[in-house]
């Protein structure tokens, strides 16, 4: 604890005039102005499982909070409650994969990345088993503080060979990544958006289809290129609308596969002379921004580069909109930062 934090701990607080509730872990991500789809992961998994008996679902006491309950209701005999035991969850999923199944194992991102890492590494990734690890509360999507905020999950997992890493933006991504994960013969870690998930990308690109391993241009723009993943693609698109009113033309390249990164597309777009801004719902250390920077440097493509990401800190608890504003992930803050860089 820092001295400042210790001092603040003993400062009395007053009840605020406007009530702002801490976002509960079960809450859907607020996305004003977008239509939503309920539990796209759960329903997509049920659909995929209809014709594929290899698919089973396992969870560590978080079926309801990862939308796996939809699968459990549809296929009670193919659903395994492993209890509050994430190391076992991953080991048992590996065991089922050994027996020819395609296990979807769900928990929160913090528990998969921090608590179960060795088991994902040695029982799943080292043997390249087709276990699909689908995790709720990625990055800063809860106001409960660092115990539930997986701000470094991508950094942890990017170093793991064989593991494909997905960071979907919206309901379309979440639903379409399910069959793509099944078709991919190997382990996958996917960040999950659950509950009522907004439909974002098809508003800009009605023909959009998620493709594993591929970055796709969602919005063209002359002045700035935002390379983003996850919910930050939604925020970047919203910010681009705001900036368009100021005559700033922002392109948004959505990069839902963090690993393997679509370096070819990124380099092609990065070489067009625009300010390049990476935007990720993750620590500035070890996520999309650093992955893109590395690709650019290695290829000798060096546009002006800025990173929108969470700071290298344990984050505050509180209401999510407040926190997104505080840490620069809100639409208004993204637009403000980009204006300042031009």
């Amino acid at each position: 604890m820092t001295a400042a934090a210790r001092a603040r701990k003993y400062e009395p607080r007053r009840v605020p005039e406007t009530k702002v509730a801490t976002s509960a872990m079960i809450a859907s991500l607020a996305a004003e102005g977008y239509d939503t789809v309920a539990a796209p992961f759960g329903h997509a998994l049920v659909e995929a499982a209809k014709d594929d008996a290899r698919i089973v679902g396992l969870t560590a006491d978080l079926a309801k909070y990862t939308d796996l309950h939809v699968f459990a209701q549809a296929y009670p005999d193919r659903f395994y409650q492993m209890g509050m035991a994430e190391q076992l969850l991953m080991s048992a999923a590996a065991g089922m994969a050994h027996e020819g199944f395609i296990p979807f194992a769900t928990t929160y991102s913090v528990f998969a990345s921090r608590r179960a890492y060795d088991f994902i590494c040695m029982a799943i990734a080292e043997e390249n088993l087709p276990v699909k690890i689908v995790c709720g509360l990625p990055g800063l999507t809860t106001g409960y503080g660092p115990s539930h905020q997986a701000t470094e999950d991508l950094a942890i997992f990017r170093g793991l060979p064989n593991l494909t890493i997905l960071d979907p933006c919206d309901a379309t991504d979440v639903a379409q990544m399910v069959p793509a994960m099944i078709a991919h013969d190997g382990p996958v870690y996917a960040r999950l958006l659950r509950g009522k998930v907004p439909s974002v990308i098809t508003r800009y690109r009605p023909d959009y289809q998620f493709e594993l391993g591929r970055a796709q241009m969602i919005r063209e723009g002359r002045d700035v290129l935002v390379v983003s993943s996850g919910i930050m693609t939604m925020r970047a698109l919203d910010a681009a609308e705001l900036l368009a009113k100021d005559g700033i033309d922002v392109a948004v390249l959505h990069c839902p596969t963090i690993k393997p990164l679509d370096t070819e597309t990124i380099l092609a777009e990065a070489g067009k002379g625009r300010l390049l801004v990476t935007a990720e719902n993750h620590s500035e250390v070890g996520g999309l921004g650093e992955a893109v920077a590395r690709s650019l440097l290695r290829a000798g493509v060096t546009p002006a580069f800025r990173q929108i990401a969470l700071p290298d800190q344990f984050l505050e608890a509180g209401a999510l909109p407040t926190l997104h504003d505080l840490y620069g992930l809100s639409t208004a803050k993204i637009a403000q930062q980009i204006r300042g860089w031009l």
Partner: peptide, 20 residues
Amino acid sequence: EITGGSLGHGLGIAVGMALG
């Protein structure tokens, strides 16, 4: 059958295999 060596892994994998 498995990659062992990181101790404490085998029995959990065995649980998954037995379930499978």
